[in-house]
Design a protein around this nucleic acid. Structure first.
Lengths: 246, 246
DNA sequence: CGCTGAGTTGACAAGATTCAAGGGCCGTGG
DNA sequence: CCACGGCCCTTGAATCTTGTCAACTCAGCG
């Protein structure tokens, strides 16, 4: 009775990069010609591709910004260093998301970006925009679209009780997967418990306890970095009676 | 011995609108011609001005977005309604700041914007951008600048201990005043304790207790909605010995 | 002059952190 | 191949912070 994986039928998750059409940079890549077409269907991006090992840095806070980045595969964490000198995790980012948007205004990155696992990302050099320019109205509009979406307020995950934070954290990951057309019920937590605790402004013990409690309640199924959403996600919004957020 | 105001020399704060040159919309107003010049010096804005009484709504979440707003005077709170139906305060905004930047991408506002006191603001109709268009490279660049700055990560105030939250809240207001060239040591809290507590994700009693504790420690001087930063703000970063953030 | 609402304060309860200990997994080296 | 050590995660118990509830002050206002 030890083969829990088989017992609960945890299957391997998708690997491989995300499709270009599901990427937030898609419109811009098409316009700039970085993404060539073959009979109406986009093929591989022609822009610079980069591969990062776990722990490798994509860019660092304060460094002169030279490019925008789009994640194709893996997870990237954005962090800042507090005045006291310890790391504050700002957010985690999954395939299809774009990093470094502050570069247009500030010319430098404001966060450290670090790969949590094997990351593959596209690099869009900024001169692409300043040269051929935001002069073409089409490109300008695409950039404005992208930035404006990023400017919209995102509800902080570090609010409410420990339980609410953990639940919202899981639902946030699930929502992102769903938005890109992936399986939203099976999550792979690429980050450690410590990093989750950092993001949620709580302690590792609290994160662990809360996950285990949700597990006991059959709201989720946790095993290491694999999480399966059971009553969470499917019924959390429609039938709040089964799983209390609070 | 009841004349505390005189005793601690609390003086009236500046009223009147902020100067156009200290406004985040300045560049865009100049380019669009909404802000006319007289011999090189900007005069009053020619765009639509709106005045709001305390409690009046500037725009509502979900409403079709038709304009950008720049605050000239007063304080505006941005709120969202949680799925449970109660108000969550997202941020407070002071003169010179621009609201509604998500409109470009979403076509609708994502927050409710409400005046906390007598507010005066400029309204920039969105057609201004779609018509004459982001086609002029200069305007496009100004919009990108504004949006890109807004896309930069802001550290959440609802993190750390109750004391850290309150201190950071006060320092945040102070910093904003300083950025616009105003007196950063004298704050007028236009919002209620309840609204502060909501923003900081804590309780009104905790906010009250913390403010009073800082007051007893001579870190600040509080009297109603007037706060004077004493050791806070001037020495908080350079000499952490006097006032502990933690 | 009493009413009302915002703010403050105290006492207690609930929840999170802290400290300590133990389990499981994995890579290294005997 | 197995033992060992390190790291991550989990769990328990004590402590501390914050939330909760209630009472009270104070200022503004009819």
């Amino acid at each position: 009775m030890n083969n829990v994986a088989a017992e609960h039928s945890i299957v391997p998750l998708r690997t491989g990069p995300i499709a270009c059409r599901a990427c937030d940079l898609n419109a811009i890549c098409r316009i700039t010609g970085l993404l060539a077409y073959e009979g109406g269907r986009p093929r591989q991006p022609t822009g610079a591709l980069r591969a990062l090992r776990p722990g490798a840095s994509l860019f660092r806070a304060g460094a002169p910004a030279h490019a925008l980045f789009a994640i194709r595969q893996g997870t990237v964490k954005l962090t800042q260093v507090t005045p006291e000198g310890d790391e504050r995790i700002v957010s985690f980012h999954t395939p299809g998301e774009v990093l470094g948007l502050e570069a247009f205004a500030l010319g430098a990155y404001v966060c450290d970006a670090t790969a949590l696992d094997a990351v593959q990302c596209c690099e869009l050099p900024l001169p692409l925009f300043s040269e051929r320019g935001v002069q073409t109205a089409e490109l300008a509009n695409a950039v404005v679209q992208l930035l404006s979406r990023a400017a919209a307020v995102r509800p902080s995950l570090a609010r409410g009780s420990a339980r609410e934070r953990v639940v919202n954290f899981l639902l946030d990951i699930s929502r992102r997967l769903a938005e890109r057309g992936l399986d939203a019920a099976q999550l792979k937590l690429s980050m450690s418990r410590l990093e989750i605790a950092n993001l949620l402004d709580t302690r590792i013990e609290t994160v662990s306890r809360t996950l285990q409690q949700l597990n006991r309640e059959r709201a989720i199924h946790v095993r290491g970095d694999r999480v399966r959403l059971l009553t969470l996600g499917s019924t959390a919004t429609s039938a709040p009676a089964t799983v209390r957020l609070t």
